[in-house]
Amino acid sequence: MSVIAIAKKDFRDAMRSWVLIALIVLFALFTVGGAYISTQIAGLLGDAGDQPLDILFALQTPASFLIPIIGLMVGYKAIAGERESGSLKFLLGLPHSRRDVVLGKVLGRTGVVTVAIVIGFAVGIVAIFGFTGSFSLVEYLAFTLVTLLLGLTFVSIAVGISAATGSTTRAAVGIVSLIGLFWLLWGFIGQLLLYLITGSIVPEPPMPDWYLLYSVIPPGGGYGLAADAVLPTDGQFGVGMLAGDDVPFFAEPWFGFVILAVWIIVPLALGYWRFSRVDL
């Protein structure tokens, strides 16, 4: 009850933010761009293969890059911003618990990211239809749902950080560090380890198990696996293709949902734990 009231209020409030509208427009542009480029490439190669899947593959790139950023941007001020401005005093002056606030914020902000994803992908559908004259609705919907899960994951991470810190500056530092870690450092360190251990930068698959595990740990790794779980992609999105015949359980598509669930629950639990104990 309380959670829903907060989520509704928060959604209304955040939807009126210009930054958010700019992010939605940006994401829509990327999906159209992705759809265009992929259909062009398919056309050039004269590829008569599974076109809708190719297009989804093309959409995965902007989605796996932009949705995390949108999720983090939408979420990082959720609680720290209210603490900083003092509106949290108004919010907690009403009969809401701090847990209601954390959960309500996650719901409300996830609603916002959902709007971004739905608009972006709806525009994408229209574009694909315009370029190719066809698309696969079922696969498109499945891909949209998995992407929503990715959005929820990053909103949870951001709200967790926001709940744990008292200032938006520190929350911003937190999310920028996270982006730096997962977008730059993680892949680089992985490559470095791979080189040190196998002596080759691009070894032939199958990759060693430790590298597969290392690759699925970030939320993006979980997203790839989860996409493979709901689409007939043959492990193209996740690390499945890199594994040998004997695929370890953590490189199987279903494990993507486990990874995402951990990334949703743990940051929120830690953030709430800190937030519930602090003097406001």
């Binding site: 907060i6 409030d13 009126r16 003092g86 005093k89």
Partner: peptide, 26 residues
């Protein structure tokens, strides 16, 4: 409660604030 040093939600109207408080209090 009327707290000190509070802030409200700039993007929402006065009526929306009260609607939210009414819903919150049930």
């Amino acid at each position: 409660i009327l707290p000190e040093g509070f802030d409200l939600y700039d993007r929402l109207t006065g009526r929306q604030h009260l609607d939210f408080a009414i819903e919150s209090k049930g």
